[in-house]
Design a protein around this nucleic acid. Structure first.
Length: 494
RNA sequence: CGGGGUGUAGCGCAGUCCGGUUAGCGCGCCAGCUUCGGGAGUUGGAGGCCGAGAGUUCGAAUCUCUUCACCCCGACCA
């Protein structure tokens, strides 16, 4: 194993291979035997659980409740909303039968042809349809509104090409589905939730994001408006990390969800939906990692501090471990998660490399030398800086360091991201920046889908969003030369 | 779905063009000794239906056909 870990491909050569190696070698996930699906391993899942918990708290704090809706959706539900079908039809897993039987020819088990379902069931690619079919029964009056539900679930999208965490056939996510009395309230909800996502990305994951509105072409199937958070990976490609949709009355009408209004009339309910997925794991990995492996922000690290004894012989190992236990209990009292690695079958150098690969924020090493001096060697993962520090009061220093690292990791990603936003005013410049620098490009666009598609075909770059903080500015479209009133954000993306 | 590639030990690979003892190597694993402040050294050992099926041949990891799986590059997407 030792040698293997060193062979992480330098990112310059092939970033996606490097990424894949890292995910597997750090023990986060691996490809499963099932096409396009992945196995999330315990260490990876521990990170996801921390994300889940933090997000869930944020949802609760904004008045949402968790619920659960069926995995299977009758096929007919999909045809209710025209744009929605079109968006998802190409990537659905379909259940057609409900029983197996022994092959009469003796070749194991086959599908029982007698057991064909009258109406096929679709494995949910997203739950708007089944949820709005349910909301129809829940909503009769304006007094029943708003409904603010979230569900944690798995969904299936039969993607052509998959990539660990970023795009797998089955993935874990949360999807919020809300119903409102007015258009304004629904829009406010959708915007509130994209801000919750941005807050989470920046303050928990340490990943800076740009909030904005999707262009018509990139909008969610069935939405009136899609809001997004866009992050930038270290290879200069953008990653859509979360979306929040204002669905208008599209699903209210499609599922006939009408309610008695305050004024005594009838109206269709207004909807939003919003979601983030295990793709966030991909964002976390690609935003911070270096060639030694993962760099995890302390708030999401399953192990925040690893402690490694240096020793000769069993007796010394026992003494060092005892010493580490004392430090560990002080750290644990502060709510810090600590692991003592006193395995005697691998050497300390191996352990150092292993925890760096796994992104453990702080490493403490204690050997006989330290014991004599009353010191500990402390290393922080983000800078790889080592320091001999006093054993006395170590818990306060570690606590402070973890907080500092959370900031440092974010600041580093932020200054990288900011350095990768380029304003361009000509088509030549646009292509040049895309080819040679990458990252986000702020450029004028004439607002038409034709131009957007033409740019995509020519360069593979898409409009990531029209940022919320865009200021009005007159100019001409970099592609068509037609008048434009603001710059939008372009990038190549995952 | 198009174009390319790969299936040989737990992992990474060589061998395949040009068929020929008992199929190799590195890492890992097990046991012993020496080590232990940045991925240990050494000695011994275990581990294989060469992806699956059919064929050609005295003989197949190697040739032919069929099939399955996975990876990479596109189109699609959180």
């Amino acid at each position: 194993m030792a040698k293997e870990l060193k062979q992480l491909t330098p990112r310059e050569e092939n970033y996606s291979q490097w990424y894949n190696d890292l995910v597997v070698k750090a023990g986060l996930a691996e490809n499963s035997a099932v096409r396009g699906c992945m196995v999330i391993k315990p260490y990876g899942y521990a990170i996801w659980e921390k994300m889940q918990r933090a997000l869930d708290d944020m949802f609760k704090a904004t008045g949402h409740q968790n619920a659960y809706f069926p995995l299977f959706i009758p096929k007919s539900f999909f045809s209710r909303e025209a744009d929605h079908v079109e968006g998802f039809a190409k990537e659905c897993a379909v259940v057609t039968h409900y029983r197996l039987m022994n092959d009469p020819e003796g070749n194991g088990v086959v599908v029982d042809p007698e057991a064909r379902l009258e109406e096929e069931l679709i494995v949910r690619p997203t739950s708007e349809t089944i949820i709005w079919n349910t909301y129809k029964n829940w909503i009769h009056s304006y007094r029943d509104l708003p409904i603010l539900c979230n569900q944690w679930a798995n969904v299936v999208r039969w993607e052509m090409r998959t990539r660990l965490f970023l795009r797998t056939a089955e993935f874990l996510w949360q999807e919020g589905h809300t119903a409102h009395e007015t258009r304004e309230e629904a829009i406010e909800e959708a915007q509130k939730m994209i801000r919750v996502y941005a807050d989470f990305a920046e303050n928990w994951m340490g990943v800076p994001v740009i909030m904005g509105t999707k262009s018509a072409n990139e909008r969610f199937a069935g939405a009136v408006d899609t809001f997004t958070i866009e992050a930038l990976m270290q290879d200069g490609k953008a990653l859509q990390s979360g979306t929040s949709h204002f669905l208008g009355q599209n699903f209210g009408k499609a599922f006939d969800v009408q309610f008695a209004t305050r004024e005594g009339g009838m109206d269709y309910a207004w909807a939003t939906s919003w979601g983030v997925s295990t793709r966030l794991m991909g964002a976390l990995i690609m935003a911070h990692s270096d060639n030694n492996g993962l760099v995890l922000p302390p708030k999401l690290a399953p192990i925040q501090v690893v402690m490694i004894p240096i020793y000769k012989g069993d007796e010394e190992l026992r003494r060092m471990t005892e010493e580490l236990e004392k430090i560990a209990s002080k750290l644990r009292a502060k709510g810090i998660s600590v692991k003592i690695d006193n395995r005697d079958n691998v050497r300390s150098g191996f352990k150092f490399a292993e925890y760096e690969l796994k992104g453990v924020p702080v490493r403490l090493v204690v050997g006989p030398r330290d014991l004599a001096n009353g010191t500990v060697e402390m290393m922080r993962r983000d800078t790889l800086e080592k320091e001999n520090v006093a054993l006395e009061g170590i818990e306060n220093l570690v606590e402070k360091t973890l907080e500092e690292m959370q900031q440092t990791i974010f600041q580093k990603a932020l200054s990288f991201r900011n350095s990768m936003i380029t304003k361009v005013d000509s088509w030549e410049e646009f292509k040049d920046v895309l080819e040679n620098k990458g990252g986000f490009i702020l450029a004028h666009w004439d607002g038409t889908t034709e131009t957007e598609v033409a740019i995509k075909e020519a360069t593979k770059a898409t409009i990531r969003c029209i940022p919320f903080d865009t200021v009005d500015e007159e100019g001409t479209c970099v592609f068509s030369g037609k008048p434009s009133h603001r710059r939008v954000l372009f990038a190549r993306s995952y």
